Simulated assay, not measured.
Amino acid sequence: MLIPENALRQFAQQVFLAIGCSPEHATLAADVLLKADLRGIDSHGVARLSGYVRLWEKQRINATPDIQIAHETPTTATVDGDAGLGLVTAPFAMEIAIKKAEQFGSGWVAVRNSNHFGIAGYHAMMAAEKDMIGFAVTNASPLVAPTFSNERMLGTNPICYVFPAGEFPPVVVDMATSAAANGKLEIAQRKGSDVPEGWLQDQQGNAVTDPHALKSGGSLLPLGSDREHGSHKGFGLSSVVDILSGVLSGAGYGPWVPPFVAFLDPLPNPPGQGIGHFVGAMRVDGFRPVADFKANMDNWIRRFKLANPIDRAQKVIIPGEPELEAELDRKANGIPLVDAVVEDLNTLAEKFGLERMGNF
């Protein structure tokens, strides 16, 4: 089913309002989710709405948080999200990072006591709008086993860098540090299809392709899949994200990061509070004139787009290009939702007395 962007945005806003969010927070949270859907990252868009509602019902999400700066220097800060939506606390933190960068050249903000923050790209792209390089990472529910282990210790822990350009759109590198994002498993589950080998292992450490393997004690693998194919590199990148997001901020880290699903309780005696994020902004003109940088970025992009392809039918893709193409298409033609997500949203519609998806 294709749903117009504005209709889906309004629905998401109404759900956030229904759980008690302020109009400002409801609008922002909906915007973060819609950005994911528009950019083709369906696993992190409105498909997550019911998950946020269930966590709110379990009193693990505070719909009216008092977000505060807990610690600060001229170029750094730590934000306490008061158990609020990460969709709200992460943009709050990036605004602080941008303001610090405007004054001092760069700004870096850690966040604790937060929740799932949607796509990392949303937050990092905020900096690019100000001619800054944006950076955003977050830790997440422990679903990934470190190299040589079968114990879930890390999240999919995404990393995002955004570099502004001139003639071309920004270069957006937004990726999980696991072999695949958990949302990819959810998409495969909804479609009833297997996933590629190298994404998952069962409880004994054997490679499996069943997208439901996590439910029977399996785990996601780090980027690289196994030691022979470089999983230690994915493990290392994920560790950096976890330390910046959790250890540095005072949030939970490793196996103590709270699970996104409401039926699982966090581990007892956590060393920190909630999920953690880390965002940053660097002024380009702190290094060289913006116009010069953008001219070279355009040249970089142009040259890489002309790289000799293995198959003439498949040209080199610049990071962020597929998502931008999806956004242009979906803004014009609507956002496709699979039946399982439509049913999920209609359940929310009935719960909160909203208009059903089929009526749009």
Rank of each mutant, 00 (worst) to 15 (best):
339 D>H: 08
357 M>E: 04
5 E>M: 01
207 A>H: 10
28 L>W: 08
71 H>G: 06
31 D>Q: 13
225 S>R: 02
274 G>A: 09
70 A>N: 14
55 L>S: 04
36 A>V: 13
258 P>I: 02
62 N>Q: 09
309 P>T: 00
353 G>S: 11
153 M>P: 01
3 I>P: 03
13 Q>H: 07
159 I>Q: 06
10 Q>H: 13
50 S>N: 07
271 P>Q: 08
179 A>S: 15
319 P>W: 02
16 F>T: 00
253 Y>W: 15
271 P>W: 06
56 W>C: 10
331 K>P: 01
322 P>H: 06
350 E>A: 13
260 F>I: 14
336 P>N: 10
276 G>Q: 02
304 F>H: 04
313 A>S: 15
199 W>H: 04
118 G>N: 06
153 M>D: 05
346 N>G: 07
238 S>V: 01
346 N>M: 15
200 L>A: 08
23 P>S: 06
142 P>C: 08
3 I>V: 15
345 L>I: 09
12 A>W: 03
1 M>S: 14
208 V>W: 01
270 P>G: 10
144 V>A: 00
213 A>G: 09
145 A>W: 03
337 L>Y: 14
190 R>G: 05
159 I>D: 02
232 H>M: 08
352 F>E: 12
252 G>W: 02
225 S>K: 01
209 T>E: 00
219 S>H: 03
29 A>L: 01
43 S>D: 07
49 L>T: 11
258 P>E: 04
126 M>W: 03
202 D>T: 04
2 L>Y: 15
244 L>V: 02
141 S>C: 12
218 G>R: 00
58 K>D: 14
9 R>Y: 09
2 L>K: 12
263 F>L: 09
317 I>K: 05
187 I>H: 05
253 Y>I: 04
189 Q>D: 00
285 D>I: 10
32 V>S: 07
232 H>L: 11
77 A>W: 12
337 L>H: 12
174 D>F: 05
142 P>A: 08
25 H>D: 15
152 R>S: 09
159 I>Y: 10
302 R>I: 01
58 K>A: 15
123 H>G: 01
283 R>M: 04
328 L>Q: 15
289 P>Y: 10
342 V>S: 03
25 H>G: 00
34 L>K: 04
123 H>K: 01
234 G>R: 04
90 A>G: 08
280 G>C: 04
14 Q>K: 13
